[in-house]
Computed example of a mutant assay.
Amino acid sequence: MEHKLLKVSFPVLEELKIQKLPNIIEIWDKQLLIASEEESKSFCQLKDMTVSNCKKLVHVFQFNMLSRLQNLETFNVDDCPKMEAIVSEKGKEGTTSNDIIVFSQLTTLKLSELVSLKSFYNWPTRFEVQPLFNNKVAFPVLEDLEIEELPNIIEIWDKQLVIASEEESKSFCQLKNMRVSNCGKLVHVVLFNMLSRLQNLETFNVDACPKMEAIVSKKGKEEGSTSDDNIVFSQLTTLHLSKLVRLKSFYNWPTRSKAQPLFNHQVAFPVLKDLKIQGLPNIIEIWDKQLLIVSEEESKSFCQLKDMTVSNCKKLVHVVQFNMLSRLQNLETFNVDDCPKMEAIVSEKGKEGTTSNDLIVLSQLTTLHLSELVSLKSFYNWPTRSEVQPLFNHKV
């Protein structure tokens, strides 16, 4: 008796979750495109996809499946210990090396606990180590990106990404929310040449990356640019930096000084409202003393700040230099804790051109928490004959 091969088609499937399937080594058949007319639309309506805890999966997609996933909007992959790439080059027959993978509707991408991941798409290259995203993959409408526990990734973006085709040129330009966490080999998040693409970034969290020395690297800073070029995060409202034990500065621009502040005058945050700095043991200054001597564009940097937390910064002796106070007039909530060397919240440094009668007024501050500051002598260490000062003197 002749048996017919049963085939399965999902022409209107919108949501797919694959979780804890330890024996699955492939999700889709490589022959899926060589199918009947009825099958040809299978999976083409897929919008939301999650792949989690599949121990034998080495990749999610073969190249020839991508044409079916043009409606994908949300894509989560986590806890797949053998996964080396999200997209495999398998099934790429009949295409050229110039073909670009475009996720035209994808707005949310989360990659976490992928301990063997080498790249999102492992296209052939001379280099043994690839960035997570190379110039062969484009995300023109991506808004939310989360990268967590990818221990093999040493670069997020390809340095060649800006030198790209017209189709690629808008990749990542709609990114609004980004989190990078627990990536053991990352030394920085952003190359300088990627900054022009991140002008819509609103929320930016970086934590638990033990080798990270700077958030923005000078690499990719074209020869035609000058040392006066400013980095402006024009839409960023929330910035959280935590557990970055080697971080030296937000942007490691060239300077004669070995120790740099966390934020120098080359970086501007004109609409930043929420700032958290936690577990940065190498930071000795938060703000550059030159920050007030800046261009008109930078002059509004930090002026919208409402909520600020400084925690577990072992080398900080103070939070604010006097000349920064004029920028913090919108501050509403201010928390400082577990900074063992901190002697004052406000330092008299940067007080040039003012008189001894000048008062510090934090006119919008409604909440102030100070805790575990074992060396703190006063909120503001203004000069006085008395060796012992109260926590709050008449200058504040």
Score class of each variant (00 low, 15 high):
P340M: 06
P11Q: 06
P261K: 01
P151Q: 14
E37G: 13
L391S: 03
N381L: 01
E128H: 13
D307M: 13
L275Y: 00
L46P: 11
V77Y: 05
I101W: 04
K377S: 14
L186P: 00
P254W: 05
Q174M: 09
P254L: 08
L175Y: 08
T238C: 05
H188M: 02
I360Y: 04
C173F: 15
N230Q: 13
I345C: 00
D48L: 06
T203L: 02
V102W: 06
W287I: 06
S326A: 15
G350F: 03
V58D: 06
S9R: 11
E222A: 13
N177F: 14
L239D: 00
L145P: 11
D274V: 03
K159G: 15
C209P: 01
P261W: 00
M65A: 11
E148G: 10
K314G: 15
K341F: 01
R385W: 00
L244P: 08
L236H: 04
F43D: 07
I18M: 02
L66G: 06
I286D: 08
L365D: 08
Y380G: 06
W157E: 08
L5N: 05
D358P: 10
L32H: 15
V187E: 13
D274E: 13
H3I: 12
K349F: 04
M194K: 04
V294C: 15
Q389S: 14
S225Q: 07
S227E: 15
H3K: 15
I360T: 12
E149F: 04
E213R: 03
H59N: 15
Y121C: 11
K300M: 02
Q389V: 11
S181C: 03
R68Y: 11
L132C: 09
T125D: 05
S299W: 07
S40V: 03
K176E: 14
S326L: 15
S171K: 07
L280A: 07
K82C: 12
P254M: 07
M324I: 13
E14D: 15
N71R: 09
S171G: 13
P261I: 01
F302E: 07
V317T: 10
F192H: 03
L117M: 06
S116V: 03
E155R: 10
F133I: 12
E168H: 12
L272E: 01
K248M: 15
W28R: 09
N23H: 04
S356H: 10
E213W: 05
S227Y: 08
K395Y: 09
Q321M: 11
L21R: 13
L145Q: 03
S227L: 12
V396P: 02
I100F: 03
T107G: 09
S347R: 08
K90N: 15
R385T: 08
L13R: 01
V320W: 10
P11H: 05
S375N: 12
T50R: 01
N393Y: 04
V361C: 13
L191C: 15
L175E: 03
S311Y: 06
I231F: 12
S295P: 08
S52Y: 12
Y251G: 02
